[in-house]
């Protein structure tokens, strides 16, 4: 765990809509959060990124859209939860779908939150709060060490 202490938390935005990705990125940057942000345009790509980085980096915060080509958000969630190395990865759903079924499924796979894109500001605020909380607990761990 020591080795990971210096590493920043990476936000992995999984979304095929470039504008949406930009909106989140802009939103985070505009409130002064410079956490590294990587982007995957579908579930498969995201899975690849996560598996490659699993051994060297601190787990990502995944901001996941549901409606995507190749592998949709719920499929990716299922894969993550069944992967022992990645099963603890925190996931925030950010989608246009206000379908109750989608919401139920997502929470069924232990997501950290379910946010609608129409309310982008709230999403950005939640991501920021999460990152600050993680950063604070890290600094505490670092001080103790």
């Amino acid at each position: 765990m020591m080795n990971h202490a210096v590493s920043a938390v990476t936000v992995l935005i999984v979304d095929d809509d470039e504008v949406d990705v930009r909106a989140i990125t802009r939103g985070l940057r505009r409130i002064g959060i410079d956490t590294p942000i990587s982007v995957a345009t579908d579930g498969l790509e995201a899975l690849g990124t996560l598996r490659d980085a699993a051994t060297v980096t601190w787990p990502y915060l995944v901001v996941l859209d549901l409606n995507m080509p190749r592998m949709c958000g719920l499929e990716l969630l299922r894969e993550l939860r069944h992967d022992t190395a990645l099963s603890a990865t925190p996931v925030l759903i950010l989608t246009t779908s206000d379908d109750e079924n989608d919401k139920a499924h997502a929470y069924g796979h232990h997501v950290a939150g379910y946010l609608l894109k129409s309310n982008a500001t709230a999403a950005v605020d939640l991501i920021a709060a999460y990152l600050r909380a993680v950063s604070f607990s890290r600094s505490q761990v670092a001080l103790q060490n």
Binding site: D17, V19, D20, R22, T96, K117, A120
Partner: peptide, 12 residues
């Protein structure tokens, strides 16, 4: 639903 995505893009 699908129209909303590009619309949001335009708004953004």
């Amino acid at each position: 639903h699908d129209l909303k995505a590009p619309l949001r893009g335009i708004q953004n």
